Amino acid sequence: MARPKSAFHDLKRDEILDVAAQCFARQSFPAASMNDIATACGTSKARLYHYYESKEAILFDLLDRYTQRLLALIGEAEARAQRKNLNERDALHELVRAFLAEYETSATRHVALLSDTKFLGEVQRELILNRQRDVVAAFTRFLRRAYPQRVTPVNQTALTMMLFGMINWTFTWLRPGGEMSYSAFAEEVVTLLEKGLG
């Protein structure tokens, strides 16, 4: 009978994924090697292979867990909106806040999602892309419900992508501990949605 994997094993995997995401963001996925990741983890390459058979396996686990987390945030936002009896606009605003709070602590994972999905095998890549599409579809639903007069079948894709354009690339310029916090930026996004720049 196979021995069950311990919580320590999963904890170690989480640590490896954190370090690997940093390596991929710093060096790029193609340039980072298993040896680079092992060194950054403070372990041997042989020990790293105990957890992952390849760099591609690390990337897939990283993106698999991260996209599941993003979908879970959507489910949590919907549940919170129901529990708090929020109106549709406040529900969208809560979703924006939740995503930016996540982005604050997972910038390197987000870089991997936006830059490295193309390096996965076809089946794995399609799974991750489908989850990204699910995230976009959920944001579109939230937007449509929040602003039914403004968001139409003709412009809903453009407006959803405009919102993602505001929040998805924060890792390139918004720094934890910088002049503006992620939570303050979330409030700017919410204000822009509600009032525009006027």
Rank of each mutant, 00 (worst) to 15 (best):
T43H: 04
K45Q: 09
A46L: 05
A46I: 00
A46Q: 10
H50P: 00
Y51N: 05
Y52W: 12
A57D: 14
I58L: 06
F60W: 03
F60D: 09
D64C: 10
D64V: 02
Q68T: 15
R69C: 15
L70Y: 10
A72G: 13
L73H: 15
I74L: 14
I74G: 07
E76N: 02
E76D: 12
E78C: 01
A79I: 00
R80W: 01
A81R: 02
R83D: 14
N85G: 06
N87M: 03
N87C: 09
L92Y: 06
L92G: 06
H93C: 04
H93P: 00
E94C: 05
L95G: 05
L95P: 06
V96A: 05
V96T: 09
R97S: 02
R97I: 00
F99H: 10
F99A: 03
L100S: 01
L100G: 03
L100W: 06
A101E: 11
A101G: 02
E102W: 05
Y103K: 13
Y103S: 03
T105K: 14
S106F: 13
S106V: 12
A107F: 03
T108K: 12
H110N: 14
V111L: 11
L113K: 09
T117S: 13
K118E: 15
F119Q: 08
F119D: 04
E122F: 07
E122D: 14
V123I: 08
Q124A: 04
E126Y: 06
L127G: 06
I128N: 08
N130L: 01
N130M: 04
R131D: 08
V135I: 14
F139V: 07
T140K: 06
F142M: 09
L143D: 02
R144F: 13
R144M: 11
P153V: 01
V154M: 03
Q156M: 08
Q156W: 03
Q156D: 05
T157C: 03
A158D: 06
A158I: 04
A158N: 07
L159Y: 09
L159W: 04
M162W: 06
L163W: 14
I167S: 03
T172V: 14
G177T: 12
M180Q: 13
A184C: 02
